[in-house]
């Protein structure tokens, strides 16, 4: 469990993190998203005290880190695994030697180290690359080795800064399955820093949106996706562009508003309104265990607006007429 209170970090007069309060429950994955320069990496570096906060406290599993002595902090850091952007492997060490590094620091015997390293490489599916040097591995393979190294000291918390940035979707998928596996099998608390919304949708339980050093939005991913007035929600499930409707038809933007929407809503509402509903585009998926969806549909213009809104609302769907010209593809805005 990670508890951050009043965390502020300044470089000179430049406030990079501004009074951040933030809790991550044990065994959950939290995604921290935000634009480049928002302070994500600084937050990451403050959690394991690579960067000393200007003020505020950082607790990991109940232990407050900012007051520890150098020696105590060294011990505490072993409970925090760190996965760096672009893996940060030592070029002159093999994959196995890289993974062994934290165990060497810990002073384990060669025998113990050998055994642990094999287990770790096996977990990340890299046993067959144990004696390869980083220069001989692909980006995704290096990242797996980086994760194995982050897990070497059996941490209860894993921090990953942009662990999937620059990887292809397939490799990203395999890294993310690895992370969810860690959460589910080992109850590791994971903080994923990313700017990729796909990553948030597919693995995160909780999402925090960092902007100019403040957390501007926070919540369970399933809840955030259903918010109507949220930039994060739109970023997670973008509105689908719709073609310009023919005369007498109107385009509607739909968003699932409840966690459980009956998937047969389309035919049901069609029957209730006694009209055809044309499905133009849409994205429906399970996010954080809940149904989430954003779609555009086309309905005859003869129906009263509030009648349509009510019909959809009865099925847990928020409906809005796509009026702004920019929302319709092919219309210059």
């Amino acid at each position: 469990m990670i508890e951050i209170t009043g965390l502020t970090k300044r470089y000179g007069s430049h406030t990079v993190l501004d009074n951040i309060d933030f809790t991550v429950e044990s065994g959950s994955i939290v995604a921290v998203v935000g634009r480049s320069g928002a302070g994500k990496s600084t937050l990451f570096r403050c959690v394991n005290l690579l960067e000393r906060p200007t003020s505020g406290t950082v607790r990991v599993d109940g232990q407050e880190l900012t007051h520890l002595s150098r020696g105590e902090l060294r011990v505490a850091r072993r409970a925090i695994g760190t996965v760096f952007q672009s893996a940060n492997l030592l070029r002159r060490l093999t994959a196995a030697q890289n993974v062994a590094l934290p165990l060497r620091f810990l002073g384990l015997t060669e025998e113990e180290i050998h055994k642990r390293v094999r287990e770790l490489l096996d977990r990340v599916g890299m046993l067959h690359r144990a004696n390869h040097y980083p220069g001989q591995l692909s980006g995704g393979q290096r990242q797996r080795i980086g994760i194995a190294r982050g897990l070497a000291t059996q941490p209860s918390v894993l921090l990953a800064d942009e662990a999937t940035s620059g990887l292809d979707p397939e490799t990203t998928g395999s890294i993310l399955r690895l992370l969810t596996g860690l959460r589910d099998d080992l109850a590791v608390t994971i903080v994923v820093i990313t700017h990729e919304m796909d990553v948030v949708r597919s693995v995160a339980d909780v999402v925090a949106h960092l902007d100019h050093g403040r957390i501007v939005e926070f919540g369970r991913v399933g809840d955030v996706v259903r918010r109507s007035d949220s930039t994060l929600s739109t970023a997670l499930l973008p509105d689908q562009p719709a073609p310009r409707p023919p005369a007498g038809e109107v385009v509607w933007q739909l968003r699932y508003q409840e966690a459980a929407v009956d998937p047969s809503w389309l035919s049901r509402i069609s029957r209730e309104l006694d009209t055809d509903i044309a499905l133009l585009s849409g994205l429906v998926e399970t996010v954080g265990g809940d149904h989430a969806g954003r779609l555009t549909v086309r309905i005859g213009a003869h129906l009263a607006e509030d009648k349509v809104v009510h019909a959809f609302a009865a099925h847990g769907i928020h409906a809005r007429m796509a009026q702004a010209a920019g929302e319709l593809a092919g219309v210059p805005s």
């Binding site: 570096r45 394991n48 690579l50 060294r74 011990v75 505490a76 850091r77 072993r78 925090i80 760190t82 760096f84 940060n88 030592l90 070029r91 002159r92 060490l93 590094l101 934290p102 060497r104 620091f105 810990l106 190294r149 070497a152 000291t153």
Partner: peptide, 24 residues
């Protein structure tokens, strides 16, 4: 960043000098 790897995994300064600075 490689020094950060050492610090983050709980290495002492001497361990970082030996295992990271001198090695790399």
């Amino acid at each position: 960043e490689l020094l950060d790897v050492g610090v983050a995994s709980g290495a002492s300064r001497w361990q970082i000098i030996r295992s990271i600075q001198l090695t790399e």
